[in-house]
Write a protein that binds this DNA or RNA. Structure first.
Lengths: 127, 127
DNA sequence: TGTCCATTTGATGAATTTATCAAATACACA
DNA sequence: TGTGTATTTGATAAATTCATCAAATGGACA
């Protein structure tokens, strides 16, 4: 991680946003895995037990539990115990909105070129 | 990365979204670093050269260039050469919206408890 | 052409994340 | 209490990302 220098407060966007950008990065980090995104997408349709999620996401149960703990720590989901199983749910409707905005952005990008993954454009800087 | 199993298409959210979740995760990965988030926040206020960004973000120039290449590959920013310098800009207004939604989510979470980083809650599953 | 400035690329070690396995914990129920 | 099911935790190797340095590239301009 970077060690931030004295800090240049000359611009507006530089003031008071240093910690926020770190926290935002943490949030995005929590979203930065296919299994976690899938999990949130599934939870959009309603609460689910760990076992259910595991089947739908298609990863090993202990891995599922680890991913859920990442989502929990980021405050993206809540968990409540129900009998012998634990039921997870989205914590905030803004999580759905975050996914929706991401989807719109990607669809827009796709409409224009098709290669976020293959990376044939946006690849090299202007020459 | 996970190797996805045959796939369970019994639920709606499971159909046709497997690749999208991977691409979304790529997008969030591109956002998952404080320097990159800062960079985008700065670019909200208008286009900037690499040198300017480097000063404002406060990381080494070659590191700055690397981070910009991550943002470029994710389609979050555009670059154009102007004389001897390269000017970066946000590519899509939805990038700003993504940051705004993230901020709202975090402010909401903060209002309720204060520990995404320290992780004193959302830490343990229900017992 | 040669030199300077701006930016990118490549190489590399350190740090972090991912995926897997084994073991622990929690609860239900006989 | 003991057994079975559900979930979490801990350990660990493999993969990825980060940060730093040195070298390469591109353009401006003398």
């Amino acid at each position: 991680m970077d060690i931030l220098p004295p800090r240049d407060a000359s611009r507006d966007s530089t003031s008071g946003e240093l910690p926020l950008s770190v926290v935002k990065a943490e949030l995005f980090k929590a979203l930065a895995h296919p299994a976690r995104v899938r999990t949130l997408e599934i939870l959009r349709d309603g609460p689910r037990s760990v076992g259910d999620l595991q089947g739908l996401v298609g990863i090993e149960i202990s891995h599922m539990s680890q991913q859920l703990s990442v989502l929990r720590r980021a405050g993206l989901v809540t968990a409540r115990r129900e009998g012998s199983s634990v039921i997870y749910a989205l914590k905030d409707p803004l999580v759905e909105e975050l996914l929706a905005v991401a989807r719109h952005f990607l669809l827009g990008a796709l409409a224009e070129t098709r290669n976020l993954l293959a990376g044939l454009q946006g690849e090299a800087p202007p020459t």
